[in-house]
Design a protein around this nucleic acid. Sequence first.
DNA 1: CGTATGGTTGAGTCCGTTCAAACTGAGTGG
DNA 2: CCACTCAGTTTGAACGGACTCAACCATACG
Lengths: 251, 251
Amino acid sequence: MTAAQTKSVSDRPSVCKPTACDGCEIRSLTFCSVLSPDEIDRIRATLKTVDVEANTTLFREGDPADHLFNVTSGVVKIYKLLPDGRRQITGFLFPGDFLGLAYDTNYVYSAETVTAATLCRFSRAKLLALFDEMPHMEKHISATTSHELAAAQEQMLLLGRKTAQEKIASFLLTLARRAAIHGDHVHESAHPGLALPMNRADIGDYLGLTIETVSRTFTHLRKSGAIKLLDSGHAEIVDRDRLEALAEGSY
Amino acid sequence: MTAAQTKSVSDRPSVCKPTACDGCEIRSLTFCSVLSPDEIDRIRATLKTVDVEANTTLFREGDPADHLFNVTSGVVKIYKLLPDGRRQITGFLFPGDFLGLAYDTNYVYSAETVTAATLCRFSRAKLLALFDEMPHMEKHISATTSHELAAAQEQMLLLGRKTAQEKIASFLLTLARRAAIHGDHVHESAHPGLALPMNRADIGDYLGLTIETVSRTFTHLRKSGAIKLLDSGHAEIVDRDRLEALAEGSY
DNA sequence: CGTATGGTTGAGTCCGTTCAAACTGAGTGG
DNA sequence: CCACTCAGTTTGAACGGACTCAACCATACG
């Protein structure tokens, strides 16, 4: 339940490579897709590429929001905590996703890697300054934020009104849809089935459930033939229609 | 639980007054606050002021998003439904709040008045076109969306991880903070205490609880001396510190 | 091997729900 | 003025889905 001991980015020298935007495989998924080559060069000057291992804290809620990030590989989770350690994960971020945008000068949530990950780290001040010169970039980010808000509302529906089974079914389908659109950038090797890089505790804290309920519900869905649980970190949707029905409570 | 019978804006001629932005009391709360007098005039040409009574549907999830709205008086709720009628209210909107921004051409949630309300209704196409000419307006709305996203994440924490008592305490405090900042534009007469214009069913659907649990929890908070329940639609926070503690689970 | 970590399964409990009934206050009409 | 209705709210009793506590299993790693 509690965040336990995790490494922090600032605890040790981050691996910062001189940035190579040229071969960026996920540019089409980010705001970089709307930038001209010249603009890419200018952006490149404001960022560092950082490699971090799994379970590394990128920043904590309340910290000064000095940096913004683009996930280029791996998975990141963002979450909020209650004083007694209860945790709500508000999102999982995949390659192409942008994080750190706070409405004031401090982060409003914490961020931690789920897997080993690579991120483009921007200076917040510099990037915000560039917004004025590159309004199309700001527009892209603004559109992204609107998307996230819509997703957040969908998640509120899930958290407030869905049963455990509906939550798990919805979660699997959302992951699957995302994988279909974005391609599987999570793992280099095209693994069969759906990648579930996060553990049961993370899934529980994302869906408002306990680990035990998550586990039991997976088992139940497996026994009912809707899904298969492959070896660690992978699942397969067997009966998608049934899962869709389960996710909305119409069964 | 189900939406039941509600009037629809399109069912009857909406009351559309020729718009008077001049005396607008809540301009400072909206994106109009960043506009020049000339720009206000241009905006005014694209909008209609509509008066609607309580429990009127403004639009439904899935409808083409033809209009955007600014609430100028009254209270509006936005919500999502599951096929079987379960409802999650994702927000209550007060004077100054903007609604209808969808990430594509259709609304992603439904909107309905809680009280009688007045709204500025914009043509979506015209307003979006104006964004290009008035980037500071778009910037203001973009900042608002970021705020809403942060609020949505806070609400996810509430829905996923808080107990009934923590939910109600948080809800009352959020309402109180909002009233403190924005002033009481909900009722003309300065009523003593905190306005609770929405009924128990709405509160329940906002907090992921049933009416009965909402009622019981209010009673419990009242008996414990943290709040007072005044006549219909009004409450008073007696022991704010205790309520703050209850809201975060640290008691 | 032994140990650690993450996942699964079981048994009992509890918080919030469900079902049901009573209460309240505003509005209506005899 | 009172009887009646009706919607919203409160209260009570019983139930149940998810939680808690606990044991067990599987895989990885020293």
